[in-house]
Design a protein around this nucleic acid. Structure first.
Lengths: 360, 360
DNA sequence: CTGAAAGCGCTTACAG
DNA sequence: CTGAAAGCGCTTACAG
């Protein structure tokens, strides 16, 4: 059978050792830079390694070393009301399955979305765990900066997931370009609405927590319109609704959408709460208003299928988790170079491509 | 350091052997079903394996077995004029890098896009290579069916990539749902054009070769319109342009687009040749005609950036390659169950999300 | 049908 | 600073 043994034998440590006139142990010491080797020997061995283009067998290495790599992940706890974070978590688990062979283990730490204090204290608990790598969702900017600094002090590499913190010392950021995603939303809106300018941006905001995403998305949306239809950008309505409200939100929407002269014809919701607007529009029989929002929550998908929501932009949360752990793995275990930022594609989901969209 | 040794020791073959009162060799024979074990011993060992939930260490296994897996891939040769197939190839290479540790090797076989004979002869050359798994792009349906049958006869598992052959014996298909992608195109067209019915479908066809994709895409496009705007579906123009033509094609386009009463306002090109229509529209200063097509060829991307093409649908060719080899790996090396069809997401690309679309 | 021994390529104490 | 030996968990002839 093809591929069953008839290959060029690969170069082993013992080959290098013989060529250098030393033992395998010495080559190993050179390879792993653990000192106790004379300069001359070291130089000679390194030369031969390069010359022969020696590539260690990572299987044998992992097997013999019996060492494991403990990573820590600090993520918001996902809830029924806010299920977003279960996807990065499952992405991390998916990645873990692929690399568990190599002794990688992950400890997950969860904190309540609303609590700065919990974020910080859970973060410190994680740091006390002495991990070899950290995945961090920097939901609270200042506290995250503190944690980042402490990681840097301890020499622990960090991958930021979902939100970036400029200037923080981390090896990589994995997430979406929020401003650009707002541009995509605007492009779709404009493609469907032409020069229609009775548009509105709706922000659902948490009292605490990072609003960066939301602001950048609105900014991107406006930037697009400003470039192509400045008058629409200027007249563009803008609504802030606190996350907590119940009937309150409906009143606000009612006023904003139906009371303005001529009404509103297109709405861009800057986060996953778009289903709340959808629910309202459905109730009012106003499904013809174009509605664009974020994230494939079950409820959002339902409104997409019904045609109340026209487009959803996916943040690919699962892939964010997957890429995070793989980046850490490549950095820590394989010691490869990794890119500083890893922007994921901005996926456009509509009723017709939803069912084949399995990546989340 | 966390994760450096302080774990529950995992169960090894030797543990199973001791519990069963046999040697490691015997357990190994049971594990790999290579006979030469008495029914009683076998049963006992299997029982303990189950009871202890024994999971073999694939690293140690691969290392000791020193066996390699040879896969073969039969793909069209990519050319400057038709670069599509370089992406599945690079996806295969990307996947290979991740699993080369496990002794996987791939031999690629290329054939000329236009030649049925080459396809069959190269396929047979590949079969002679005695591979443990095959990736096949079934560009020519009948010839592919023949090859599939020969693979089945030889007991070699096959993954079909890009196009499916119903009824063929393969372990998995990886590709796009062409009909559904036509629906997506129609949805976008309709979203942008409203009830406008001066639309046209353009098919660039090769003389030989599989037109399945193209037909299904048009069909999907029509199905969407038939459901929502039947009169548009009925009046929907339809143009077949042979791949070869030069100025000829321009004449045909000229007649179809500008001579019909009222002209044409939206065009759906059912494959990657959309740049040819774009080139024509640009020359005519008719960039306001909505244009939707397939595949992120460099030339298509350029027209997308310029705004001549409005949307491109990606077939994710690189991912097709990646998934193909990973599916084969999971089936052959890890002996896992794999799903029969693997439809990739239907990605919508527009000027605003093009730059972050790195997956191809 | 079964076991004991050697080996896969690398790492890890240990002795010098 | 260096080498020889044992071992990681599994597989493979070989002897019986």
């Amino acid at each position: 059978m093809k591929g069953s043994g008839n290959n060029i034998p690969r170069i082993r440590i013992i080959d290098i050792a013989r060529l250098a006139g030393v033992s395998a142990g010495t080559v190993d010491r050179v390879l792993h830079d653990r000192g106790e080797v004379s300069r001359a020997t070291r130089k000679k061995v390194l030369g031969i390694i390069r010359e022969m283009d020696y590539q260690p067998d990572i299987l044998a290495s992992t097997l013999a070393a019996r060492k494991t790599f403990g990573f820590g992940a600090l993520l918001p706890r996902s809830t029924d009301d806010s299920p977003f974070w279960k996807y990065p978590l499952s992405g991390i688990e998916e990645g873990l399955r692929e690399i568990a062979y190599f002794g990688v283990e992950v400890d997950n730490y969860f904190f309540d979305h609303a609590s700065r204090e919990k974020f910080l204290s859970k973060g410190r608990e994680m740091l006390a765990g002495n991990h070899q790598g950290i995945i961090l969702a920097p939901v609270f900017t200042e506290e995250a900066a503190i944690l980042l600094e402490e990681c840097a002090g301890a020499g622990v590499p960090v991958v930021l997931v979902n939100a970036d913190i400029c200037g923080g010392s981390c090896i990589s950021f994995v997430g979406q370009d929020s401003g650009q995603s707002g541009m995509v939303a605007a492009r779709l809106m404009h493609f469907g609405m032409g020069d229609e300018s009775r548009l509105m941006v709706v922000n659902f905001t948490r009292e605490k927590g990072n609003r960066d995403h939301i602001l950048k998305r609105e900014e991107g949306f406006r930037r697009y319109y400003d470039g192509i239809l400045p008058e629409a950008q200027k007249s563009l309505g803008h609504l802030n609704i606190p996350e907590t409200g119940g009937t309150n939100a409906e009143r606000i929407l009612e006023d904003a959408i139906f009371s303005s002269p001529g009404g509103i014809k297109g709405i861009f919701v800057t986060n996953s709460r778009v289903f709340r607007v959808a629910r309202f529009l459905e109730k009012k029989g106003a499904e013809d208003i174009v509605l664009i929002g974020y994230d494939l929550l079950d409820e959002n998908k339902e409104f997409l299928r019904k045609g109340v929501i026209d487009f959803l932009i996916s943040q690919k949360p699962r892939e964010q988790g997957y890429r995070s752990i793989m980046t850490l793995y490549r950095h820590v275990v394989l010691r490869q170079e990794v890119e500083r930022s890893h922007y994921l594609p901005i996926d456009i989901i509509t009723r017709e491509n939803l069912e084949h969209y399995t990546y989340t």
